[in-house]
Computed example of a mutant assay.
Amino acid sequence: MPLTLTETLSRAGNPTESDGFRLWHRFLGWQRSLSASLLALGLTQPLFSVLAVIGWLTREGGAVTQQRIANVSGMDRMHISGLVRKLEAMGLVTRTPSQRDRRAVAVSLTPEGRDTLARAIPAAADHDAAFFASAPERSARR
């Protein structure tokens, strides 16, 4: 007997029974609400994440390249490139071609970028504390 479309796609009877779907759905909710929290700073969650990674890598020392940002963030290198260009257009970072490798681009925070990051980190931390304190998964899955 042939399988139905639902049986071939998932063992779950509906999306809410799929752990992956619930994770994805919760992530999107977190991303939207964090972006709303950062809106006053002109940031979205992806822009903030890249800006924060640049800040961490700067603190660690060494050249901050788009490739290092991609490695730390786990995001696609082309996505990082677009986000870094947006941050540059916003005046939050500068991009400088590497003297040693034509493919590499060094990224650094501008003074405005450092100031924005200093304001964004506490806003993101406050958002996350509130968001995860109310997470239904904490009581439902334990």
Rank of each mutant, 00 (worst) to 15 (best):
R11L: 00
T96C: 01
L9C: 02
R32D: 15
A12G: 04
R103T: 07
L41I: 07
P97K: 03
L28D: 13
V50F: 12
L28W: 06
I69M: 13
H79R: 15
S108D: 15
H79M: 13
G61N: 04
P15C: 06
H79I: 14
H25P: 00
L57P: 06
Q66M: 00
L28Y: 01
N71A: 15
G82I: 08
D19C: 04
I54W: 09
L57T: 02
L34A: 00
R22K: 09
L28C: 05
S37W: 09
V53W: 06
F21R: 03
P97D: 01
S37L: 11
P46L: 04
P2C: 01
K86Q: 15
P97T: 03
T94G: 08
T94H: 09
L9M: 10
L47M: 03
G29E: 14
L38S: 10
I80L: 08
L83C: 07
F27Y: 15
E60K: 01
G55H: 03
R103L: 12
S81R: 04
N14W: 05
P46G: 11
S18R: 01
S37E: 14
D19G: 10
T16Q: 13
P15E: 02
S49T: 12
L57M: 02
G29W: 07
E60S: 08
P2M: 06
G61Y: 00
E17R: 10
M78Y: 02
M75D: 12
M78S: 14
A70P: 05
R85A: 13
G91F: 02
S73Q: 08
F27N: 15
R11V: 05
S10A: 00
W56T: 15
N14D: 07
D19S: 03
E88T: 07
T4M: 09
F27S: 15
R77G: 05
P97R: 09
M75S: 14
W24S: 15
H25M: 13
A12N: 02
G29Y: 06
F21V: 11
L23C: 00
S10W: 05
V107Q: 07
A52N: 13
L92H: 08
V72E: 13
R85Q: 05
V107S: 12
A36Q: 14
S108W: 05
I54P: 04
A70R: 09
I54K: 01
L3K: 07
Q31S: 03
S73A: 11
W56S: 14
P97G: 13
E7Y: 05
D101G: 03
G13V: 00
T58M: 11
S73H: 09
E88I: 00
A63W: 02
N14R: 09
G61L: 01
L92T: 04
L47H: 02
L41T: 05
